[in-house]
Each structure stands twice: as structure tokens, then as C-alpha cells.
């Protein structure tokens, strides 16, 4: 009994598609349309073709923001991965006061990002901040992050790692718990040292988890905004801007939704490009090994 699917059949099957269409596809298409027009806060559209993209590409501030984003994202993601991996292995091996330690590690996730950044900002204040004063007291000099874009962005990276560590930690910890403990015993009998067990059993078996964590974190980090905005506002002289701040400046400071939309689309393409390396690796590892 084959009958052609009717309109009602499609409607029954489509709530998910309609929802996705409404909240993702339609806005994306609209933003793309905005990026092809000149407008003021999205009103009074004049079609200009790819002019907005041309302007973005010829803007040195855009390139500065892109380079900043690239370095911060890569630094943050890999540093966080290493720290989270170290913590997760410790946890999987067993730590005293496990419950309390677990709560400590997860805490940053429970704190609002804005609050977290403002607290860090206070503690890093060169004249009164506890951490900044300690660092200075230890003889490392005054950390004037508001004057130096490099120090500023490093601080941004540290805060970003601090706030997102729980995510990567949880992913890796879950991945570690999924490894059959008898593999380690077999390896022990086969004569593997602790380090060999880590490099030859844990790491290869954790690769799929690591790839997923990396993809998520790359995409999250690519959208980084509040840390930079609340700390330096992209200064001094727009030198510490990242792409999301660049977008915000053009959209809401200068009212140029065309440039902002074009930047938005370029960010989507950029993060896809970065993540695709890992997506590709993941697909290959799922098919092959």
C-alpha cells in the first residue's frame, strides 16, 4: 500500500525542520542579505553587492582583529586541552576529597561570564588588584594590560580558559571513564610503564573525545566577546580587538549593519574552516581505526 505522501504527512514530520528554519536558517539568510546591502541599523537597504566584503577585506582593523582572534583562539584551545587532560587523568586515577575537588573545578561554569570577567578585571587591576600586586611583588613587573595589547589578549586568554575549563574537563573525564580499566591491567602485565600506558592506551582511545572537545571549543572561542569587551573594549587604539568586537563596533557603534553582517558571515566561514580540520580527522578516525 504505497500512497504519495500528502501535505499533512510532511507537516507531521516537519516540526523540527520548521523550528530550525525559523530560528536558524531564516535569520542566517537575512543576515546574508543584509551583508549585500548598505543600511543604517538594518533600515533603508540599498543593494551594493559584495562591496561590504570588499570594504571589510581592505580594512586593516579587520585583519588585526582576525590575527588576534586566530592567536587567542588557538592558544586558548590547546592550553585548555592540556590543562583539562592533566586534571581529568588525575581525577580518573583517583584524588582525595573527590566531591569537593569536583565542585571546585566546575565552579567557573556556574558563574556568569560577565561577573567572572569583572572579578578578574578587579583582581588584575595594576594598582589594587590582588593577583596583579602579587605578580608585581614577585618581581615580574607591573602587568599593564590596558596599555599592551599582547598582555591584554593574554589575560583575555587566561580568563577564557578559566571560564571554559569545566567544559573540556567534563568531556575528557567522561571519555576517560569510558575506557575499560582492564586494558590498563593488561598493559601493566604486558610491561607498560605509567607513561607508556598513557601514551599508548589512553591517548589513542581518547582521540575521538579530544576531537569533539576541540571542535566545540574552537567554535565557542571564535565567538569570544565579553572578555575583550569588558576588559579593554578592544583598546588601546583598536589593537586588541577580536572579530566579535569588530563586528559589534561596526554594527552598534557605527550603525553599519552591512559591514557587521559581512563580518558575521566571514566569522562563520572562518570557524568552519578551523573546525573542518578536526571534523575531517574525526570522520576519518570513525571510518578507519
Amino acid at each position: 500500500m504505497h500512497s504519495r505522501p500528502r501535505l499533512t504527512t510532511w507537516l507531521y514530520l516537519s516540526p523540527l525542520h520548521l523550528l530550525l528554519l525559523a530560528i536558524l536558517t531564516a535569520p542566517s539568510v537575512y543576515v546574508f542579505w543584509l551583508s549585500l546591502n548598505e543600511s543604517s541599523y538594518g533600515t533603508g537597504l540599498t543593494f551594493v553587492g559584495l562591496d561590504n566584503y570588499r570594504m571589510v577585506f581592505s580594512d586593516p582593523y579587520f585583519w588585526r582583529a582576525a590575527v588576534n582572534t586566530f592567536f587567542v583562539v588557538n592558544g586558548v584551545v590547546y592550553v585548555e586541552l592540556v590543562v583539562a587532560l592533566a586534571l581529568a587523568t588525575q581525577f580518573a586515577a583517583g584524588v582525595p576529597l573527590r566531591g569537593a575537588m569536583f565542585a571546585c573545578i566546575l565552579m567557573p561554569y556556574a558563574i556568569s561570564e560577565v561577573v567572572a570577567v569583572l572579578v578578574w578585571k578587579m583582581m588584575m587591576d595594576p594598582s589594587v588588584g590582588a593577583i596583579a600586586r602579587t605578580i608585581e611583588g614577585m618581581g615580574f613587573g607591573m602587568l599593564n594590560w590596558s596599555a599592551s595589547p599582547t598582555i591584554g589578549l593574554t589575560l583575555v586568554g587566561v580568563i577564557n580558559v578559566w571560564t571554559h575549563l569545566p567544559f573540556t574537563f567534563l568531556m575528557l573525564y567522561a571519555g576517560l571513564l569510558a575506557i575499560d580499566p582492564s586494558l590498563y591491567e593488561a598493559a601493566q602485565i604486558d610491561g607498560a610503564t605509567r607513561w607508556q600506558r598513557f601514551t599508548r592506551i589512553t591517548l589513542p582511545l581518547l582521540v575521538p573525545t579530544i576531537l569533539i572537545a576541540l571542535i566545540f571549543r574552537l567554535i565557542f572561542a571564535f565567538r569570544m566577546f565579553s572578555e575583550v569587551w569588558l576588559l579593554t573594549k578592544g583598546g588601546p587604539a583598536r589593537l586588541s580587538e577580536v572579530l566579535a568586537v569588530y563586528l559589534y563596533q561596526h554594527g552598534f557603534r557605527y550603525g553599519d549593519f552591512g559591514i557587521a553582517s559581512a563580518t558575521g558571515w566571514l566569522m562563520v566561514l572562518g570557524s568552519l574552516l578551523l573546525a573542518s580540520v578536526f571534523l575531517f580527522a574525526m570522520q576519518r578516525s570513525m571510518r578507519g581505526a
Binding site: 575499560d180 602485565i189 582511545l205
Partner: peptide, 20 residues
Amino acid sequence: LSPKERNIAMVFQSYALYPH
């Protein structure tokens, strides 16, 4: 002595083969 120094081999219930 550590397991490897005891010159023994063990077969586990779950086989414990290295999956990768």
C-alpha cells in the same frame, strides 16, 4: 615484584584487547 617481572600472562574475562 611488578606484574611484568613475575613472568606471568593473564587472560581477562573481557579479553581486554587494545581496541585501537
